[in-house]
Design a protein around this nucleic acid. Structure first.
Lengths: 232, 232
DNA sequence: CACTTTGCGTCAACGGTGTTGACATAAGCG
DNA sequence: CGCTTATGTCAACACCGTTGACGCAAAGTG
């Protein structure tokens, strides 16, 4: 089988349309494709024609589509954390960290949705754990508490972001149908069978929105309340 | 087009292999298929042959694959919430609801991973939302706050549960490798480059455990702190 | 019982997907 | 210059979701 992943700077041959392929170019084109034409636009065949090459040429650079998706995810993580420096306020710093992770995921929802549950123990994650645990230590938590609380924090952030990304990664029709359900199907709920739903009927539209910041802020409030006094 | 979703108790014809189709049977078979062979094993064609019928027969019961997936998700919710009755203590009741949803997801990890972020728009979800919102109303929150806070609560529960389920759905080797990373790779972190990691080195094993209860309890603590006085 | 209606299982087909093995060709080295 | 080999191209395979036409048999009616 000729499928192998080459190192950089091997000899290249331009495609029929004159493009020089590379892992970097392929990853960037994949991100562009997703960004321009929606999540469902990422297929080997479409990627091939966007690059002006035969679809099978991509298998010279990635073992399979999954391999390609992971490469894309790696790029996203790097971009999201780039240039982040925690400040003196540990609550505010954790908050910014949360928002950065989320923004990175939402910028490329489909790739994030596909890779979010995959755990890549790499340098970027190393640095993130170091930063997060360091912030909780600076808040005065003992090491064992700091680790447990960091885990609760980062799992909340990651899982919420992944969920949001997964929603965005749905085909438009399904996503919009899910959102409209709250302002349509749920509005017709029988008042007697569902008294609570009936009471909040006018507010159900909020269900279609994101709960990310609400959840993170609630969690951070609980952390601040549990912290040894006067550390913020 | 002959594609329509029938009500229950319409007349039936046995398939060529003698099975009587029904929405319930199809959903159960789908759950079994996913549980045995993973989410990617769920295709209309495979489901058809597992049921002993032509793939296109399924379109008499579900509009399309997405419709089927939503039905599967709703079944999981229903199984998890079966027999649950909220008590007078709204915090304790929300806590039990969280643990039930989690248990339901962990019982079908692979199906849960693919359905967690969907709005099923079906009866079991209806009842769950009714129960949760009702508990927050009983705590004294105004309707708009109750809806927002319920969303933050249920999203935290669902996304955490989905993340756990996704980890469980990984092949054993990969899952164990991820867990061991905390007691192996992370132990070798350079003390100077990663001072915080170095400080908590002996506690990192906790990272391989679940943060579900910790996160839910932190969130519930924040909710209790925000609640109008004396309602618990 | 016979007749009509129609629910629904089956079949064949369309256009999409990821992936692979065989082949051809050009890049770069000796 | 010729050889080796990396790599782009092609054709093919095995899937996928979905649809429209068809016909059987079960339910409804008298």
């Amino acid at each position: 089988m000729p499928t192998r992943v080459p190192q950089e700077n091997r000899r290249r041959r331009p495609t029929r349309s004159g493009v020089l392929l590379s892992q970097g170019l392929i990853v960037e084109t994949a991100l562009r494709l997703i960004g321009e034409h929606g999540p469902e636009a990422l297929s080997v065949r479409r990627l091939g024609s966007a690059l002006g090459c035969d679809p099978s040429a991509l298998y010279r650079y990635f073992r399979n589509t999954d391999d390609l998706v992971l490469a894309v995810a790696d790029r996203i993580i790097g971009d999201a954390m780039e240039g982040f420096n925690p400040g003196p306020d540990w609550v505010a710093s954790l908050r910014e960290m949360a928002l950065r992770v989320r923004a990175g995921y939402l910028a490329h929802p489909r790739a994030a949705a596909m890779a979010s549950y995959r755990v890549t123990r790499r340098e970027n994650e190393f640095r993130a754990v170091e930063t997060g645990v360091g912030l909780l230590l600076s808040a005065g938590f003992a090491p064992d508490r700091a680790v447990r609380l960091y885990l609760a924090f980062i799992d909340t952030v990651l899982s919420h972001a992944a969920m949001e990304a997964a929603c965005l990664a749905l085909p438009r029709q399904q996503r919009e149908a899910d959102q409209q359900a709250w302002t349509e199907v749920y509005q017709t709920a029988d008042s007697e069978a569902y008294p609570a739903l009936s009471t909040v009927r006018g507010e159900l539209h909020a269900m279609a929105e994101s709960s990310f910041e609400e959840a993170v802020d609630l969690l951070l409030a609980a952390l601040a309340a549990h912290a040894p006094a006067g550390q913020r």
